[in-house]
Amino acid sequence: MNRIGVVVFPGSNCEYDAASAVTDLGAKAEFIWHSATSLGDVDGVILPGGFAHGDYLRPGALARFSPVMEAVRSFAAAGGAVLGICNGFQVLTEAGLLPGALQKNRGLTFLCQPTTLVVASTNSVLTRSTSLGQELRIPINHFSGSYTCTDETHQQLVDNDQVVLRYVDNPNGSRDNIAGICNEGRNVVGLMPHPERAMSTLLGSADGRALLAGFVGQTVVVA
């Protein structure tokens, strides 16, 4: 059984949703407190949504200095699968594990709504079980989710096929409709939408399963 570590910062609030989702997909979830200096024996790691360290200063700015992040950095450098969802995406950009930054939404409103995403690349640990151009109904829940980066970084993202998910109807002003990106190694992915909240048609959508099943499955290869 795949073991997925779910990092818990003070202020994380989606860790149980993430753990429940991967458990539902047949993996074993293990919570990892932010002060841990090792991830233990895991096949993949998720940085969940929430407000790590209160989002003080900037979302992710202080979480980046939590001891666990050195372990996440080493794990990622060794090719381990890392997924940052919402606040986790913000943490990964602040930590420099993914390029760019997330700024306040255009319109300055907190957005909590379903969105439609289109798969822009299937070559990542998150999107490998989806098909190119596939539309996915996944909710967002954020105030600082507008993806921004320099022209140079944007060109690199496009040239290297690192944009993995785009919004169909850009809700937050993200550059180039970007909802999710991966690193050059394709083993670190961050996205603002919440696939772990789209696991059941009873609750609106089960489209998150395709993404997280890919993530959980990919860890077999990486391990």
Partner: peptide, 12 residues
Amino acid sequence: LRAGIADPEGAT
């Protein structure tokens, strides 16, 4: 915010 980065708070 750097020049060229949208500042919705300032604009509001």
